[in-house]
Design a protein around this nucleic acid. Structure first.
Lengths: 346, 346
DNA sequence: TTGTAAGCGTTATCAG
DNA sequence: CTGATAACGCTTACAA
């Protein structure tokens, strides 16, 4: 085992005290020029690097941030993660990544693990189970410990903290309006079960758009799929039993999958039926036809979440002292060939 | 700022010594049953949690592992990451994730940052630039510090360490054989520039298969695209100027993109031209037609890489004491509609 | 200009 | 059974 260079070692070798070495390495003006030189030369020669742990313990700050996400094999979260990581790195923070796999328990365990000195703050999107069970004790504990927390995308009103969201309601509203402008009237919604904050918002926007245009909301045109379960029979039955000319889906997979299924039945997209999805991911771009999609700008969300967190960490002000903010990211409709009148975008 | 519970605090409140508290919390049999109970009750009441940093400093182990990858918005790396994270978590390790964006400098900076006490070991795939420039001083330094390192997928022979790979050569060989069995003879290869270890292996397998079947290798049928650059003109020209009936692509994007382009020209896939890609990602599954693909089993690679690393960390044996191993993950051909005779798989 | 000493929160050794 | 004490590697008053 190679002996690691430490201040103590350098001090011993050079016959000076530890604090002299420490100061010399920092170019402190308390130390003589000659000593500084000697110390720095020696340190460089032996490749001295200060031990992060010791510094963290001393300063009570780790320069790590914990990112807790439900899923990493998923375009949107991946993109947000990228934004967080990039911003954080640029500001001297490392990212500890935890994946909860949509499980409340994993969320709790991961946070507990990191909350005891491993990170200076958290950025997270709630797991499906957490949203379903409405169980937030672990987040309350983080709050009590006054560890800064930023929630993004999947959030809850139960916890007072900084948040970054997209304008789900408005985005869905705009998507439906796009259909209406295109002359569609039998507009379906394919969404998840109710407990997701984002799905709630998107459904609200869907209803609002129809109502504001004087169209009745036909509950039979709303299909609620069990989370991430692509039950083909359910989807096929839905399309067989309803008269539909446009479909808004709350995520990309639902959109691509149902679009493929109706095409297999011989339905022409977009002529007979238009599709709009959420999350402008890689699938939307390469689908046939290209899927018109509400882009969520995940990278930007990540950057903003990281900025909010790091600002709060560095200000040292708790949620009580400095009021919490909620940033809304405007989503953008990327038009492709699954809607008409579209200028194709690659 | 909430005062954090520490051993010292507990000791003061309870009028005992710090070491008594420490031992009591560990149910040490040096301590009286009654004291143990008192201490534990108090600790629980005030939600005492030991400080990870202090423990790490003391033990000289962090229970963190550093994962350095070129890109996270990318199915294969994401999947590997997932495997690493899951295995690590199960074995008590957290994952610090760094994305290099294919840059050597970012790779160097990230490793330097983590090498000074933040992690017990590294798992990484080399960045494009690192492979291109063949610059490995940063890895040699890690070796000198005797910090365990596992390379996966994008590796180099210059560094002696544990490695996890797929059988690139054999996989490409098998893919080409599949084409040959299907009666194809004008088999093209679309690959990256030469410096990637994986592309080299795949190209070798491609050549080997043709040769072993007595087919000449026509260099004009090998298209080398600049890394991740989807230059449509280049691809179109390639297909226009060559007579091709099957295409092997070293990654999923190249495959999907060129398949889309030839289809746009009116080429029938798979009747007139077959396609096989690498990385069985989400695009392959949802493409039209579904893309036959060599699955790289990223999750398993991640698990194995994590296991190799953690085993080495826990054994405490350096690369010199315990010889390095290279694990090969067999890739599997997932047949879809872009090749003939395929039993479609969803 | 340099050194001493206390402290960050633990653990471990050794006396009492 | 309990408690000093030193140590992990570093920072920072404060003394010299």
């Amino acid at each position: 085992m190679k002996r690691k260079m430490t201040l103590k070692n350098i001090a011993r070798e050079l016959g000076v005290s530890i604090s002299t070495v420490s100061k010399a390495l920092k170019n402190s003006n308390e130390i003589g020029a000659e000593t500084i030189e000697r110390v720095q030369a020696f340190a460089k020669l032996y490749n001295y690097r200060p031990n992060n742990l010791a510094i963290s313990l001393k300063n009570k700050r780790t320069n790590n941030i914990g990112v807790i996400i439900p899923d990493i094999v998923h375009y949107f979260f991946t993109t947000v993660f990228r934004g967080i990581e990039q911003y954080s790195k640029k500001h001297g923070y490392n990212v500890i990544a935890c994946v909860t796999d949509e499980s409340l328990e994993r969320e709790v365990v991961n946070m507990e693990m990191l909350a005891n000195g491993s990170v200076d703050g958290f950025i997270m999107a709630l797991s499906a189970e957490t949203q379903k069970k409405n169980h937030f004790d672990h987040l309350k504990r983080i709050n009590e410990l006054e560890i800064p927390l930023v929630l993004f995308d999947r959030v809850t009103d139960e916890i007072e903290c900084d948040k970054v969201l997209i304008n789900d309601r408005e985005a869905a509203y705009n998507a439906v309006m796009k259909f209406i402008e295109n002359g569609r009237r039998k507009i379906a919604l394919i969404t998840t079960e109710d407990y997701f904050s984002v799905s709630q918002g998107r459904e609200a926007g869907y209803r609002q758009a129809l109502e504001s245009f004087g169209l009745p909301v036909d509950e039979a045109l709303i299909l609620k799929l069990p989370f991430m379960d692509l039950d083909e029979i359910l989807i096929n039955t839905f399309f067989d039993s309803q008269d539909i000319d446009a479909v808004l889906c709350v995520n990309e997979i639902f959109a691509i999958h149902s679009m493929n299924l109706v095409q297999k039945k011989g339905v022409n997209v977009p002529e007979e039926m238009e599709f709009i999805g959420f999350t402008d991911g890689i699938l939307s771009k390469y689908a046939k036809p290209g899927l018109t999609s509400m882009a969520q700008h995940g990278f930007q969300m990540g950057e903003i979440a990281a900025k909010m967190l790091i600002d709060r960490i560095q200000s040292g002000l708790s949620e009580k002292e400095e009021p919490c903010r909620t940033e809304i990211i405007e989503s953008t409709l990327i038009e492709r060939e699954s809607t008409i009148n579209a200028i194709p975008v690659l």
